[in-house]
Amino acid sequence: MDQEIKHLPVGDKALLVEFGNSINLQINQKVRNLDSLISQSALEGILECVPTYCSLLIYYDPLRISFDQLVSQLRDLEERMSEVNFPGPETVIEVPVIYGGEYGPDLDSLARYHNLLEEEVIQLHSGKKYTVFMIGFIAGFPYLGEVDDRIVTPRLATPRLRVPAGSVGIADRQTGIYPFESPGGWRIIGRTRIRLFDSGKSPPSLMKPGDIVTFRPIGEEEFELDSK
């Protein structure tokens, strides 16, 4: 059954297209499909689109297109979505991670929470392919899903004031990587040296929604090597 697509005003210059209200690949795929259809069709008056888990926020210029006009054009595109063949994910990004110890201060407690060994958590976390659902929170931060049921873990009750750049964390069914040092409440299980955001590059973010991400456990030596 196809859920009804909602079009909602968000302030005086944005429109939200909502495809559903759950985290799943099918809905997220629709978000990405509409996003790419919009960029291909060069709709008049569109300023910027922000794809997230189950919705697409579209910034527009009300001088060039009205809310109602935009809704009707979007409806046309949405109808075409089922007929268009969208290319599958092309980009697979491997992220080398050093798990546990000082780099993953929550690995031990997360393992105990689930009655698992640290090695098992590492195996479960690195044994899956993840899809980038969205980039958000801070520049270049990928929301990846979904982790194995056995390591689904709630956020920390009290967020840390400083999470180091490169930290790999788990929050509920999601896993993610902090591109910069920042406050944060995700449970940190490891760290990578991979550079997720470079303001000098175009695009500046290493990952984009729809990309496939894998984690590869590494040791101290390779981690130190990556820093050079």
């Binding site: 302030g11 922000v50 929170f137």
Partner: peptide, 30 residues
């Protein structure tokens, strides 16, 4: 709710019920 895009000017209400108005350097999703 599931995190979505947050525009400048959004009035968010966290669990304590007190509003936060999002300004220009805010995170893009929430």
């Amino acid at each position: 709710m599931i995190s979505d895009a947050v525009p400048v000017g959004a009035v968010q209400v966290p669990s304590n019920g007190k509003p936060i108005v999002v300004m220009r350097d805010a995170q893009t999703t929430g």
